[in-house]
Design a binder for these strands. Sequence first.
DNA 1: ATGTGTTCCTGTCCGC
DNA 2: TGCGGACAGGAACACA
Length: 289
Amino acid sequence: MPELPEVETVRRGLAGPMEGRRILRAEVRREGLRWPFPEGLAARLEGRRVEHLGRRSKYLLAELSGGETLLVHLGMSGRITVSAPGNTEARSLGTFVHPHRAPETHDHLVLHLEDGLRVTLNDPRRFGAVDLLDTARRDAHPLLRGLGPEPLGNAFAEPYLAARLAGRRTSAKAALLDQAIVAGLGNIYVCEALFRAGISPRRRAGRISRVRLARLVAAIRTVLAEAIEAGGSSLRDYRQADGELGYFQHSFAVYGREGGPCTHEGCGGTVRRIVQSGRSTFYCPSCQR
DNA sequence: ATGTGTTCCTGTCCGC
DNA sequence: TGCGGACAGGAACACA
């Protein structure tokens, strides 16, 4: 599911139920995901209050009382759902709340909060990650240390990007997927941003003019902002509404549209799919140069 | 240093 | 229906 807009949507949905509530009990239902869970995870979560729910790139960061932060990455297939007893007034929580259900196959971590609320992490492919880190030294964590700037923050601007891409012979597509250059973009939003900026995904990163780099920065910011506004993108929808309210997938101009017409007025081109470093890229060869 | 390919894992979809 | 293969929103890691 998740690139930056989806993770931000999840964060906003979880903030109401989680912030200010204590974790009464943590149910750890397997040893780990991509890596083993940290030592004593359940015991270290128990009794902690969630002070703040933040995000860095595609990482959710739940700041807990006692100086530790719970880090969660959703990988490719991770989902988080909130459930409550049937009589709960869900509206006050500001998010979609399910009734409680029996644990399912890929429910790996369940947080039992105050007021009967539960937060469940489900991740079939298990590319996700969970860790606990020292809040005071948050940005020194190995997974966060090397990240580039937030694309919606002030540090991400044309001069930065120009300096970062100078001399790079890799493709524009690969450069934008590189989390050390800019954090939080994934396959979908890279394709969409390059389309909006009129830049070919195959173009060498170091050979994009500064004017066009400025356009790219703007395109990245607007596509992410619009996607967040839409509640992210929901692909491969699960049967029932899963708290996944995103509808930005209807706004894709190129992603998943191989063979379809270019949406740019008067272009007349056809969206193509190519493979770059093992992943699908969608673009319009006639208006992306 | 940089760039590319492989790998982790399950689920779904498509063609035969 | 069943089966095999391709593919999926990520990113660490091993290598040329």
